[in-house]
Computed example of a mutant assay.
Amino acid sequence: MSADRPFALQRRERLMDELRRHGTVRVRDLARLLDVSELTVRRDITALAARGLLTKVHGGATLPTDLDQAPAPARRPRPTPVPFTIGMVVPSLDFYWPSIVSGARTAAAGLGVQLQLRGSTYDQAEDRRQISRLTEAGQVQGLLLAPNLEGNGVDEMIDWIGNLPVPTILVERQTSQWTPTPRQLEWVRSDHALGMELAVRHLHEHGHRRIGLVLSKGSPTSAHLAQGWLKACTELDLPSEFVVRESVALDQPGHRQIIEGILDRCRGSRITALIVHSDPDAMSIAQYLAEQGFAIPDDMALVSYDDEVAHLAEPAMTAVRPPKARVGRVAVEMMVSRLVEGKRRPAQRVLILPELILRDSSVKRARAL
């Protein structure tokens, strides 16, 4: 084995990082990723399972669910599956949502329940159509929903959801504290505001006092990010005026001109770091900076929000990673708990904290003497 291969502790930390990212991992894929034998990976999985950090499954591992039973002697009887079917409607089946769906499926498999998935769009009429398909078939006992709660008709949509014939939990969505429905709607989502605070405080700790924010136009996440931005800037006594609401990904018409305008404003405001939502927009800005001869992070530090593909940037990009797979898992666990306990269980509204993944785009390397 070559000397540069990861030691056991580093290898297991990398294994857990992949598991948190995807919700489930396969021995074969990990062996290839870590450049070790499948036997070594199986030993690592066994060691981590013994500490309760993951659950061994055939050919790989999953994150443990909150409802997992404590480890017991070998050959223990398998728990009787809970005979529930849960419907799930998400606004997209690409970018961001696959990780949430994967987490939900992992939890469902571990709890012995069925998951019926429906893809929708960011449109209330289509949301209603897909939700109605599930409820009218009479095959689901609960619903996990991510409806469009922007624009006109939101109050009517919430009222309609609150009167559905089966329990409902919102996923990566939330209502106001009080809703005029027969039961207060439950929800689970990433704490995006805190995720933004993590990014601002990280840049502040590395000496940045003039930071800019680029928010993806039209994203439901933007309101939470703006809230966290204002809170962090206020507490750290930083100027908060530099906020741009534009989509600048490579597939956006005129993105180069928009980025050029943003960077002109950065020079005028002496901005030394940008937080960008989301990865495609951050990578587009990084690419433009490189073309113009800017050094990252020396001339401009960058932090992305989402961490879907930020590691593929050049340089690899520091990013805030919402706990997407965990959100999906917790949503299923909450629903099963609701279905098992019924009205005895108090309503829950859960925020799950994101992580800050440090890479080369935000931390200057120490120069060799």
Rank of each mutant, 00 (worst) to 15 (best):
S2D: 13
F7G: 15
R11F: 12
R12N: 15
L15N: 13
H22S: 15
V25I: 14
D35L: 07
E38A: 12
L39R: 11
D44W: 00
A49K: 03
R51S: 14
G52P: 02
G59V: 06
D66T: 00
D68H: 02
P83F: 09
F84Q: 14
M88G: 11
F95P: 03
L117G: 11
Q124D: 05
D127M: 04
R129S: 15
Q130I: 05
S132G: 12
Q141W: 01
P147M: 08
E156P: 04
N163I: 10
P167V: 02
I169L: 09
S190N: 10
H192D: 14
G212E: 09
L215E: 06
S219K: 00
P220A: 05
S222P: 03
S222H: 01
W229A: 12
W229I: 09
L230Q: 06
C233E: 07
T234Y: 00
D237K: 04
V243G: 03
V244F: 02
P253Y: 02
R256S: 09
Q257L: 11
R267H: 11
A273G: 09
V276D: 08
Y288L: 12
I296M: 02
P297R: 00
Y305A: 02
D307H: 00
A313Q: 04
A319R: 00
A319D: 02
P323N: 13
R326T: 14
V327H: 08
V327Y: 09
V330I: 13
A331V: 07
E333H: 05
R345T: 04
I352G: 13
I352Y: 09
P354G: 07
R359D: 04
V363I: 03
